[in-house]
Amino acid sequence: MLRLPAAPTPALRCVLTALGSPAAVHPPRTPALRAVQGPLSAELPLPVHLLGGPGGTGTAGTPSLTRLAAWRFLIRCGDRSIAAADTRLTPEGWTISHFCEGPYLAATERALVQAEALAAPYQPRLLGVPGLYMLALWLHADVESDGTSTTPGPADLLVPLSPAPPGIAAHHIHRAADLLPVIGLRLPPPPVLDSAASA
Rank of each mutant, 00 (worst) to 15 (best):
M1Y: 00
L2H: 05
L2F: 04
R3T: 14
R3E: 09
P5I: 03
A7T: 03
P8R: 08
T9D: 14
P10L: 09
P10N: 08
R13Y: 00
C14N: 00
C14Q: 09
L16T: 03
A18H: 04
G20R: 10
S21E: 10
S21D: 11
P22A: 04
P22L: 07
A23H: 13
A23Y: 07
A24F: 12
A24P: 03
H26E: 14
H26A: 15
P28F: 07
P28G: 14
R29A: 13
R29E: 06
P31G: 11
L33F: 10
R34W: 00
A35T: 13
A35I: 09
G38F: 09
G38R: 11
L40G: 01
P45G: 13
P47C: 10
L50M: 08
L51C: 01
L51F: 05
L51A: 09
L51Q: 07
G52W: 01
G53V: 13
P54D: 15
G55Q: 07
G56R: 02
G56H: 01
T62N: 09
S64N: 14
A69K: 06
W71F: 11
R72Q: 15
R72D: 08
R72F: 12
F73C: 10
F73P: 09
R76N: 00
G78C: 08
G78T: 08
D79E: 15
R80A: 14
I82E: 06
A83G: 05
A83W: 12
A84H: 11
A84S: 14
A85L: 13
A85K: 06
A85E: 07
D86A: 11
T87K: 08
R88H: 14
T90H: 10
E92D: 14
W94K: 07
W94D: 08
S97G: 00
H98I: 02
H98N: 04
F99L: 00
E101N: 03
E101F: 00
P103T: 11
L105D: 01
L105I: 02
T108V: 12
E109C: 12
R110E: 04
A111S: 08
A111M: 13
L112M: 06
V113S: 04
E116I: 10
E116M: 13
A117G: 10
A120C: 07
A120V: 03
Y122C: 09
L127M: 04
L127Q: 04
L127T: 02
L127R: 05
G128F: 07
V129G: 02
P130K: 03
P130N: 06
M134Y: 03
L139P: 05
L139M: 03
A141G: 08
D142N: 15
V143A: 10
E144K: 09
E144T: 15
E144Y: 04
D146L: 08
T148V: 10
P152T: 07
P152D: 13
G153D: 02
P154Q: 05
P154S: 09
A155Q: 13
A155C: 03
D156A: 09
L157S: 01
L158T: 03
P160K: 03
S162M: 08
P163A: 10
P166Q: 05
I168C: 11
A170S: 12
H171V: 02
R175E: 13
R175Y: 13
A176D: 02
A176V: 07
A177D: 07
V182E: 13
V182K: 06
V182A: 10
L185H: 11
R186E: 09
P189F: 14
P190W: 01
P191K: 03
V192G: 00
L193G: 01
L193A: 08
D194Q: 10
A196V: 07
S198P: 03
